[in-house]
Design a binder for these strands. Structure first.
Lengths: 347, 347
DNA sequence: CCAATCTATGTAATCGATATCATCATCGGC
DNA sequence: GCCGATGATGATATCGATTACATAGATTGG
């Protein structure tokens, strides 16, 4: 690969002049022409790594998420990449699989690459990585926690999961349900624990203490949620409603209900969590607690870039967005099953 | 940020020794201890950018895709990231929005970052970027085309879209359909043009020439597919089956059918394209032409890394994978609507 | 006991850019 | 016609690592 010296030699000038050419400094028309042809003949493309070493920047943002194939994340990542692009940043993406050890390696790699800031969807804390978490809180590098916040030392863009879940379960309670199960992700993921808390609070306000067997923790796959729900449904005293705390879990729950020949919401109600662009086409039309994924991505990316560029400074900012309860049919509010309107304004 | 010189100074040795420490070369036990404490007290993390400049590597792979929020891509990206991780590569991700101009900028950025190879899902060619495409074919950098192949000069991992579509439409024809519409993405995306070709061939074999109004090109959003399908359904002579050429289009078609109060497959059949992990929960259970997204990601990533490391050399490799026709209910084969079995072995 | 070998380490050039500082030619004004 | 301002350019140190080469001290063997 050609470097700036080769170009300089071919154009008959110094590397400084070539560098000036690339940085819009004054270069005579004649040298400019020579440099241009030199660049063309050598198919030269400047080495951004070298430039960045000198400039102590990198133009890179890191994004660490549990799993891009989890339905909630693509919209977040998409928005982040868009915002990053608009500010001339590139994105390095890592999946942790909810493994804190892998997460810690990702952070190291990003630091090493002189990445200018990190958007982090934290994996659940594990006992053997306390040191890593302590380090995380003090790394001299802008980090914005997204979705989950392991500590209060840093900027974060979160969702009020407790209130969201509370609102959803309240909705079920208002409809008369008293035996409500929750199918949630195990592994102590904070967002799910918060949703559990919202669920508990709503029930408590109606004097209900959920039975241990109605709190079901499982892996966040459709298959696992399916099996767990099958067991739940096969119990003699099955609940009248199920709250599933993310998209795949919701689908697993629905799959189990369908496979047992039950109808939702007629036989059992389902409250889901997280929205998708196909939610208006799905049957039953799901009542869900909807997180504003795109907005989360946008706010987090803008906050991070603001910190990097210095547009934003001062104390820690914690943006807490409100999930929205989107009422459709799966909890039994609407009984009209023939017209499932689809809003054409929605993308 | 501390650098290697600071560490050397604090440890009372030269930078060369510190470097040796990091690269597993022989260092005396005593210096090793001093270096370790120096690293700790300074919270030093080596600058990979500088190292890579010297070593002429970067440990980075680029992945350029149309849009991560398009349902087909997350599984591909996930697998690629996994394979990259297993080989100690990091991934830079870019969305082009099917805009070739943006794509070309992405390629420049990746080159600049000395990225070692690129996985490229090509945006459709636009007349004003011929020069870019010519350059692309000759860039001195391993590139593996994924899903779409703009030229035959490079490695590619593709799917036989013509045969896939042909097989699907054959299926419809065998079921007796003769008026089959296609709802496809406009913008001359090659994969969709190939699916159109497969559709045409299958029809031709039955002596059918599709009416121009049965070939519907639209933007790949649910909303646009919905509107386009509504118009189609409202025609006096509506077709008896619709082939939708990707996931969002399929959902838009289904949404339109539902919103017009029609039943699928009883009133109209739908052949979809692309699978998701929730496909077994969706109603109607869709018969689809399924692309092996994970396999594509894996093969492409392994091919790219093989080229980079030199494990794979020799002439251009073109891996063509077979899409699978997954027959469920939406074309009217199965009439048993009560048992929608869900395979628990599926993730 | 000294040459030969090995081990641990330092010195300095290098990767490919940028940017400071110096230099030199040109030009307008008085 | 001389002086200072302006513009174009070159030489060179620098960013933070690696590594070839040199060197000093320790070890080994005959």
């Amino acid at each position: 690969m050609a470097n700036i010296r080769d170009v300089a030699k071919l154009a008959g000038c110094s590397t400084a002049t070539v560098s000036r050419f690339f940085n819009q400094k004054s270069v005579s028309a004649d040298t400019e022409r020579r440099i241009k042809t030199a660049i063309d003949t050598l198919a030269f493309s400047p080495n951004i790594v070298a430039r960045n070493l000198k400039l102590k920047r990198s133009g890179m943002l890191g994004m660490i998420i549990p799993d891009i194939s989890e339905p909630f994340f693509p919209a977040v990542v998409k928005t982040v990449e868009d915002v990053a692009w608009a500010h001339d940043y590139s994105l390095m993406l890592f999946n942790t699989q909810e493994d804190e050890n892998r997460e810690s390696q990702c952070v190291d790699i990003l630091r090493g690459h002189q990445c200018e800031g990190i958007l982090l969807i934290k994996a659940p804390p594990s006992p053997e990585h306390e040191r890593y978490r302590a380090k995380l809180a003090t790394l001299p590098l802008p980090i914005v926690y997204l979705d989950r916040s392991p500590d209060a030392e840093r900027d974060a863009v979160l969702v009020d999961n407790i209130t969201g879940a509370w609102r959803g379960v309240q909705h079920l309670l208002k409809l008369g349900h008293r035996r409500i199960a929750i199918v949630m992700m195990g592994r102590k993921v904070s967002t799910h624990l918060e949703r559990l808390e919202g669920y508990r609070r709503a029930l408590a306000e109606h004097g209900i203490e959920p039975a241990g067997q109605d709190i079901i923790q499982t892996e966040p796959t459709i298959a696992d949620a399916y099996s767990a729900t099958i067991q739940l449904l096969d119990r003699a005293d099955r609940p009248t409603a199920i709250f599933a705390t993310n998209a795949r879990l919701t689908l697993g729950v629905i799959a189990a209900i369908k496979s047992r020949g039950l109808r939702c919401p007629d036989d059992i109600s389902v409250l889901g969590h997280d929205g998708f662009d196909w939610q208006d086409v799905f049957e039953p039309r799901l009542t869900i607690v909807d997180q504003p994924g795109q907005l989360m991505g946008r706010r987090a990316a803008e906050l991070l870039i603001g910190r990097i560029t210095g547009t934003i400074n001062g104390p820690v900012r914690r943006v807490v967005l409100n999930p929205e309860l989107v009422v459709r049919e799966s909890c039994g509010v609407y009984r009209d099953h023939t017209t499932s309107a689809f809003s054409a304004t929605q993308s």
